[in-house]
Design a protein around this nucleic acid. Sequence first.
DNA 1: TATTGTTATACTCTATAACTATA
DNA 2: TATAGTTATAGAGTATAACAATA
Lengths: 159, 159
Amino acid sequence: MTTGHDIAIVLRAAYLGLHRRSEARFAPHGVTADQFILLATLTCGGHALTQRELARRMSSDPSTVRAMLVLMERRGLVERETHPTDARARTVALTANGERTFRRLWEAGEPIRARMLEVLQPGEAETLVRLLARVAAALDAKCVPAAGSISSHSPGDEP
Amino acid sequence: MTTGHDIAIVLRAAYLGLHRRSEARFAPHGVTADQFILLATLTCGGHALTQRELARRMSSDPSTVRAMLVLMERRGLVERETHPTDARARTVALTANGERTFRRLWEAGEPIRARMLEVLQPGEAETLVRLLARVAAALDAKCVPAAGSISSHSPGDEP
DNA sequence: TATTGTTATACTCTATAACTATA
DNA sequence: TATAGTTATAGAGTATAACAATA
């Protein structure tokens, strides 16, 4: 019988494995795995998002993203300007150097992406993404657990 | 078409969602999500593992685990003794307080586990665990990517 | 009044390298 | 020689709360 704990453990193992491999691949370029995600989000997102929107798309936090941006701005990867219509907001964009770096990072990460696809049969990648997306949505901050969802396992049951 | 990047993004979203929900649930007990994993690993693992084995099972690192253990020992959750037959090694065990705390944490985390299972049809949980396990194994530190696994995507292809 | 972002702050996790002690 | 763990050290991500400026 598969339990919620089983899902949690293997989800953790897969994510941390991905994270470590990515760190190792990107480190020679002076970029972390999380910073890569930020660059990728900017690339896919039209290159000029507000910090808040950036945080949301990265499954991160405005305060965390700000700390990352300060580091990355110092390294010339991104630049921030005040939003054209909303003077409170700031838009974040890749610099030319940031775009170049991202292209190199994307290549450096290719073996990792290939490795994940390699162990999945045709169709399984789609299934995995579909199921993970459902779990991710269920755990999203905006969602609140349903009222009747309290079951009564005891600690000894699952292990 | 599902890409390796798609898997990475949704894997990240699911894991971080799980991690945040867990932090929120466990914080009132003064325990982090990662510390919960450590306690769970000890509970499931016979209650007396070496630090190295503990790190391996947690998908973590001996040095990281040591830092965590120092904190948790100070809080009376775990205790370490020298290994009975190998004087280099130290065994880690839950204290009575650690066991009590873990039982409370396990209950506190039940809604999260239920929430994940709730959005999956019968059989899908098994599928998810099976596919994730395969990906996790492929990304494990011990595994090295196959030699012929270099494809030639360019950055613009996938987004 | 609500929202965007900044600031200050603190803590945990992560990881490398050099080291000691033991197998 | 190899292994288990420690130490020192550094950095990154995470997040909260109080605050300013703007919508």
